[in-house]
């Protein structure tokens, strides 16, 4: 699972008010470098939820991000975003609903978001 996908997933167990963003608990996180398509990154940018992305990055790094006050999107920022969105893969771990603490397991890179019958 890439962080781009994480940015769009939410938990909606019955009765959950605040199921977004999901917390990441990764036990196996792999970085796989891929060639950057800056057009693709640019295209994705307006669709992202940035607080969620920052939270996700913090989840996988377990540390505060470096300060960067650069607002205009330069090539280096694009590169950094590309790295986090497309190159970081959570292979094993869990996604945790912030509202209900329901854990959605990630196995072999595939998050299992299926709700149980009593959660629909």
């Amino acid at each position: 699972m890439r962080l781009l996908t994480h940015n769009f997933l939410q938990s909606n167990v019955r009765g959950t008010v605040d199921g977004y963003p999901l917390k990441i608990e990764g036990t196996n996180i792999v970085v796989e470098n891929s060639s950057m398509d800056s057009n693709l990154v640019r295209k994705v940018l307006p669709k992202l939820n940035y607080p969620a992305l920052v939270a996700a990055i913090n989840d996988i790094r377990n540390e505060e991000g470096e300060e960067d006050n650069n607002n205009n999107i330069s090539e280096s920022v694009l590169k950094a975003l590309h790295f986090f969105l497309f190159d970081v893969h959570v292979i094993e771990g869990c996604l945790i609903c912030p509202g209900t603490d329901r854990r959605f397991p990630i196995k072999d890179g595939i998050p299992n978001m299926i709700l149980h019958e009593d959660e629909v």
């Binding site: 997933l9 939410q10 940035y50 607080p51 992305l53 920052v54 960067d68």
Partner: peptide
Amino acid sequence: RHYRHHRPTTTTHISSSTTATTT
């Protein structure tokens, strides 16, 4: 229910504590 609905609006401001522009 699996994927979020809300779309970030276009108003952006810079948050000093984060690495990217916060929307």
